[in-house]
């Protein structure tokens, strides 16, 4: 008996994989039904549904990049401290000192790539008319995921705490100042005046809510760190699960009727 056979015949192996290797038709079907990670897929699929020229693989690539971002992000979190004192220095050390500093490059380029692949995925879904019934709701979920992808990237942009970071976030968040009614420089801001006292000031408006302060400072760094590492990823994970589940429930990948 070869070593491979000994392993595959062992009780431990059989407790994990309850069927032989997927080398024949029956076991290729069984593996899709019994493996947790594979059961996202259907057992069989129309040939055109997996043609790269049709799907561009962009949804799958986006999901894979999300996983890359999660893994590299968690590893970076072991090292990086989101405080004014340490944030910049930790990134500096990642660049100059740490042997695995390349994690930051992987994380940043993966993030840029994820924004692009999300757009391309949406582009493909639109051009094949795949948002049409019965997939309307999943398109809506996809749009929310697209927005969250941009917000993930935006919140992460601040964390290196260099000039590029704070000014990009300052420019990006200045708009919130002008939110109608809820921004202190927005139209209709005067509507929320009670007894002659402005309710909407630069210390209580939409921008303040986003930044946690009147300007991009330590409170913002903390707020964006939590949003970037915990809050948004949790929502994204939930919506991804719904997105994938709905692909199956709405009849699998789209194709001509």
């Amino acid at each position: 008996m070869s070593l491979g056979e000994i392993i595959r015949e062992s009780q431990v192996w059989k407790s994990i994989f309850r069927h032989p290797m997927p080398t024949d038709r029956r076991n290729r079907i069984v593996v899709m039904l019994t493996n947790f990670f594979l059961h996202l897929h259907p057992v069989s699929i129309k040939k055109q549904g997996i043609a790269l020229s049709y799907t561009w693989c962009m949804g799958g690539v986006t999901f894979f990049l999300f996983l890359v971002e999660t893994v590299t992000g968690v590893l970076l979190m072991f090292y990086y401290r989101p405080t004014l004192e340490w944030a910049y220095n930790d990134i500096l050390a990642l660049r100059d000192v740490l042997s695995l500093g390349i994690l930051r490059e992987l994380h940043r380029w993966g993030a840029h790539a994820m924004v692009i692949t999300t757009w391309l995925h949406m582009y493909r879904v639109f051009l094949t008319g795949s948002y049409k019934p019965p997939r309307e709701f999943n398109w809506v979920v996809g749009v929310i995921l697209l927005l969250l992808t941009l917000l993930l990237s935006f919140t992460g942009y601040l964390l290196p705490w260099d000039q590029l970071a704070i000014w990009a976030i300052t420019v990006g968040s200045n708009m919130a100042r002008a939110t109608p009614i809820l921004g202190h420089e927005g139209p209709g801001q005067q509507l929320l005046t009670v007894g002659g006292i402005d309710m909407i000031t630069n210390a209580s408006d939409a921008r303040f809510g986003l930044l946690g302060a009147r300007f991009v400072g330590e409170e913002t760094l903390n707020r964006f760190y939590i949003l970037h590492c915990i809050a948004i990823p949790l929502v994204v994970a939930l919506l991804l699960a719904i997105h994938f589940w709905r692909v199956r429930k709405d009849g699998g990948i789209s194709g001509p009727l």
Binding site: P22, R28, I29, S44, Q48
Partner: peptide, 9 residues
């Protein structure tokens, strides 16, 4: 390409 194929492989 209407014919169905198995997802594995």
């Amino acid at each position: 390409d209407d014919e169905k194929v198995l997802v594995w492989p």
